[in-house]
Design a protein around this nucleic acid. Structure first.
Lengths: 230, 230
DNA sequence: TAGATTGTTAATCGATTAACAATC
DNA sequence: TAGATTGTTAATCGATTAACAATC
């Protein structure tokens, strides 16, 4: 067996997202009482080739047994380590509009190592409002919270025209990770990591896939017609 | 010049998401009154190599002028065609919880060719509620709306344990595109296109990037220290 | 004209798949 | 043992980058 990669060695981004999904699937299978999963099953769910899936497992040091498959428990434990889910990361959320609401109410982040420490909004009408377990704080408090809790990550659910300015401010105050929900490409210094959650990209992909798959099935129909004429 | 690809020829997925982002950036630049953009500027925003960006432009038949750059107006018009944003797609939204709320309130989908025709919820307590321009309808109405408006796309913001069953039902009724916001890998027939908007994947990527970039900067520091000792 | 910038072809790189060996 | 399934090495494929030519 080849040595699995070290804990913090960066994983190829494509592999990383497959592993994140694999973790989800394994969690769910564990809840259903499954103890082992075959690479064929998992690969089908993830829509990847079986071989690729096995390579991913090998890469993170998860070993399966021929005829039994991969142990669900070990997938979960290993991936928690590799994906960095076992240590908590402190985050703040800024922007308590409808999207901010939804994010604050979503209880699933904890499972992925993210703890939302506080929620802020620049709109004083929103300050003081209760959202789930949170009370919306004014931006004036933001600085001290960042310092006190050593906040590393900011989740930005603010309007597109505010987000760059806000980002600059946060970066100056030491935030090194931005989870950006506005459809804007942020300019940040090299040491800051930005992840854009850009719904438009998803939407474009969906529509484009639909159009091109419709087209290709029409072409197949044509082929079939031709073939049946011959 | 090489011939640009035909309208519905499928684009490589990576290129597709770059183009979607490019479209966003161009829209914004247009609003700011910019008439041309240099490949260097755009590439920097998209965090890709300039050459790659130019290849993307060439692929969709957008031509720039040396020393002037690419015309913003043409980027917008061309990409609207290529990305399929000029024809409308009818969609329904199912699940009017906090996330569903946020999606219904978000007015930006129209710009990307998606029209949300109606919103549904299985919970009768939610039925009748007003959310933005919508009134929540009961699932019983879903079937007739799908037929009447020839709905192709369903946006699913329902709990994870319901989403597969709902998907099966929708697929039987002719829906061919699913925009899934639950963290579940859906099983669908081949002709159905699924796009998962999986926040966990984004979160894992963000955290992993932060950890590995922190690590690599520490390694650099070590290198610098070594170098200065020599 | 010279220089900046676009456009294209060739080289590289990394990710995926195919083929096969190892193991239960 | 035979057969199914995992694990690994080699081959392929596609995407990105480098080098350079074309153009304003």
């Amino acid at each position: 067996m080849k040595a699995p990669r070290k804990l913090s060695m960066p994983l190829p981004p494509a592999a990383l997202s497959r592993l994140a999904i694999c973790y989800q699937v394994a969690l769910r299978a564990g809840e259903d009482g499954k103890e082992n999963l075959l690479s064929a099953q998992l690969a089908k769910l993830l829509k990847v080739d079986e071989t690729l899936f096995r390579k991913d497992m090998a890469m993170v040091g998860i070993v399966g047994k021929p005829r039994k498959g991969y142990p669900v428990g070990e997938i979960i434990v290993r991936l928690e380590g590799i994906l960095g889910l076992s240590e908590f990361t402190n985050a703040i959320l800024i922007g308590c509009g409808f999207l901010g609401h939804a994010l604050l109410r979503y209880s699933g982040f904890g499972k992925y190592g993210l703890r939302i420490t506080a929620a802020f909004d620049a709109d004083h009408k929103k300050v003081g409002q209760h959202i789930g377990d949170y009370v919306v704080l004014p931006m004036e408090k933001c600085r001290s919270i960042i310092e006190t809790f050593r906040i590393q990550v900011a989740i930005l659910a603010v309007p597109a025209n505010r987000v760059q300015e806000l980002t600059d401010w946060l970066v100056e105050r030491g935030v090194t990770g931005i989870w950006n929900f506005a459809p804007v490409q942020l300019k940040v210094p090299l040491q800051v990591v930005v992840r854009n959650e850009n719904l438009a990209v998803g939407l474009v992909q969906l529509i484009h896939h639909m159009k091109s798959s419709r087209l290709s099935s029409e072409l197949e129909d044509l082929d079939t017609m031709k073939a049946s004429n011959e």
